[in-house]
Amino acid sequence: MEVSKHERIWQVVSMIPTGKVATYGQVARMAGLKNHSRMVGSVLSQLPPHSGLPWHRVINSKGRISFPQNSPQYNKQKQLLLAEGINFISDKVSLASYQWQTEGSA
């Protein structure tokens, strides 16, 4: 049976290590869905509240949280990342320092 696009996204997100982040585009590429970064955001936005998937480790290609700044979702994601040791400079994460590096990803 073929694995759905949603399941492929979930599988990639579940592999992001603690203390690392991945971009929406990186998750899409690793799930075999090149140029579908918006789909990654859409799939993650539909997760149940206590799914256990580390959705908070997915950020945009500029190193920023995609939720509106200071919204409840933004604050929750930022707190979860800070708790994992990911630091922010002017509300931006250094992708050079914190981006999850895997074979074939960049």
Rank of each mutant, 00 (worst) to 15 (best):
R29S: 12
S42R: 14
S97Y: 08
M15D: 10
Y98R: 09
V3Q: 14
N87P: 00
L82A: 11
S105R: 08
A22V: 03
T23L: 08
M39A: 11
K34Q: 13
L95I: 10
G41C: 03
N87L: 14
K92I: 14
Y74I: 02
L47W: 02
S71W: 00
W10M: 13
M39H: 14
S105M: 02
N35D: 13
Q11N: 15
S97I: 12
G63M: 05
I9Y: 05
S45M: 04
S45G: 12
L53T: 09
I65H: 04
G52D: 03
I16F: 02
E103G: 12
G63A: 11
S66P: 02
Q69E: 12
W10I: 11
L33D: 06
K92L: 03
Q69Y: 05
P49A: 14
A22M: 09
Q77M: 13
P54H: 06
R64S: 12
Y74T: 01
K5C: 04
G32M: 01
S42H: 14
D91R: 05
P72M: 01
F67P: 00
S90N: 15
W10V: 08
Q26W: 02
E84W: 09
L82F: 04
R38D: 12
G19E: 09
K62R: 14
V21G: 09
H6E: 15
R38K: 12
Q101Y: 08
